[in-house]
Design a protein around this nucleic acid. Structure first.
Lengths: 201, 201, 201, 201
DNA sequence: GATGAATGAGTATTCATTCAT
DNA sequence: TATGAATGAATACTCATTCAT
């Protein structure tokens, strides 16, 4: 009989420790030693669960992505009007990010990793997939709102999705730099303006 | 006889070479050797102009920021209506970023640098300043448009500025990942929707 | 009930697997994991049979040496003339080595191990013993051939033994590098020349 | 003006230090730190002259080979009879090896390296080239001795060359293990036997 | 007996920075 | 001014060995 270990639990424990390290010091500024120490395991153990530093980093990214997606789905009721579901989606995304704001720097590291030739392949591809998914979700919400007659038919759903998804990212960056910003309030104000229009009739 | 060198020209030459390196390989993935080789000067020379790698990187950031600001000011006429000037501002920002898209990864590196404890102070502060400036610019445009009766008075200028600035960042990230996106078209569609409102009256 | 295991069989199984690994990747290039995997047992099991990697390697050496000696004794009839027995000895040694040529690299690793200060004691001593044994065997054959009047009495048996033993090693090295060589033919040609002399009378 | 360094001298200095380390501790047992310390330079400097440990090792091999070849050519007069030149060649090879006997282990390491899959390509190829060269040299000497009527015409020059080259290697191995052996005496005795034949007429 | 998770020492290699020329 | 040789700290990754189950 062998030593019994909860593999998933240990993996999560390592991911958590690694996420904190990457958030604090960045990818290159974090050594495998740091991660091992933060998780209170030996360096060798980290390699039992992730075969390289890049793999560990990718694991952290995927894990966070999944967490975010879960909190998104959890907070996103389906009973409301399509229009309201759009607002809720965006607000839930913001809420999820705000909740884990201390790990937000990991996203910035992932974006940077997606731009470096050494890591581009893996990370750029994964990010693009993520964005495609998010945008598709928004596009569908917009289209069903249009079908329901809640939104104007001539609105370009794709463009709107790109802006909304982008705005969440860009807003979080500003919030991270200046925590006195209240992103929920900004989102609320923005949607009011967007729905009603900001131009004088 | 003194060798006459155009100090500013050489500095710019180094910045340009360094920007290309940082864009390709990231901050940590770029060595001072790489930069020196790309600029076809000796490693020692780089240190005559920048006292450390971080300084060089900061120089690149400031230089790009300045370039962007210049192209912004250049493209942004002042004769138009306030409403149109808002659109032009955003579009000019997008245009400037699209024009230098190969250096866009440098921005991602700067964002990441602003999040790492080792470099946070300098970069987070500079970024915050930049964002504050951009937002103030937008806020003023919005307010004067409101004063001119072009925009509704109840629109929260600060929130709108945050979203617009954020959306440009977030949109460029998506464009960088997927160059088939046409950011100008997205911006145009979005502003139409925003001015007119997307909700059914 | 006790699990009945043929200890000797398992030991041999491990030696065989280890020999293949050491031959392929060398001493340092082979990990205990490799050996365990090749033998399809757990790493811990290897340590039940050999108390260290060096021990395992030494075991492989001794095992191969023994195998070679057995095939030597098997092929070396005693009924022939002393002169012929010399030829047969050398040819049998060559035959044994050729037969296990894929494990020949293990010998090269042993030689190297005998030269490294960390392993010198054990391996240099064992090798010297082996060479002393082989040479003594040859010397005795030569002396009895001299007694029988088959070989000239003024031939220095010790020198001849050293050269013959050395030539086998050196020839095998060349054969390993270039398998198009036919070592048996070379040995035959050489002995003809040696017995008859190569100089013009 | 740049720091003036005698590149060749420093390279040789490093090779010498490295050769001593490899001879003492083997390839894997020698760290780049050891080499740097032995040469009294920093680790980084070693990498200025050799781009990897394997490169350094190969450099040592090539350097020793060249040294041996030079001492061979130096000691090998051309005025003598072809028969005598054969003896001199072998004796000079032995002399060269004896002279640098403390570095002999490096050869054993090279042989081992030629057998490991990770290093086989480079080292096996180089060794084969070396052996081909040595054998060709001997073959030519034998053939000219045959032409001159000094050696029997029916002797197979190729086989003889293989055995002679192999015998030198094998003899040196025995000598290294047991320095009480006098390899020159062995060679002399052997050639006497070989020229005159050891069989009773 | 058998297993394989855990450990942590060990090492090749890179690179920012300095400084003699 | 410009150069590039020299330095040595820093770090990802491997692996022999142990031992709880």
């Amino acid at each position: 009989m062998v030593r019994v270990v909860d593999v998933e639990a240990k993996r999560s424990h390592l991911l958590e420790a690694a996420a904190a390290c990457f958030a604090r010091s960045g990818y290159d500024g974090t050594s495998m030693n740091d991660v091992a120490a933060a998780a209170k395991v030996s360096k060798g153990s980290v390699y039992d669960y992730f075969k390289s530093k890049e793999d560990l980093f990718y694991g952290v990214f995927a894990w966070l992505q999944q967490q975010l997606m879960q909190s998104l789905l959890a907070e996103m009721g389906t009973s409301a009007s399509a229009q309201e579901r759009i607002v809720r989606s965006v607000d839930a995304a913001v809420a999820g990010l705000v909740q884990h704001i201390s790990l937000y720097p990991v996203s910035l590291e992932v974006w940077a990793a997606a731009a470096r030739t050494q890591t581009r392949d893996r990370f750029a591809h994964a990010m693009q997939q993520t964005y495609t998914d998010y945008r598709r979700e928004i596009v569908e919400l917009v289209r069903s709102a249009q079908s329901a007659g809640e939104l104007k038919a001539n609105v370009d759903a794709e463009s709107l999705a790109m802006v909304l998804v982008g705005a969440v990212d860009g807003l979080m960056l500003q919030y991270w730099l200046d925590p006195s910003i209240d992103p929920h309030r900004v989102v609320r104000n923005f949607f009011t303006a967007l729905f009603e229009g900001i131009g004088q009739p």
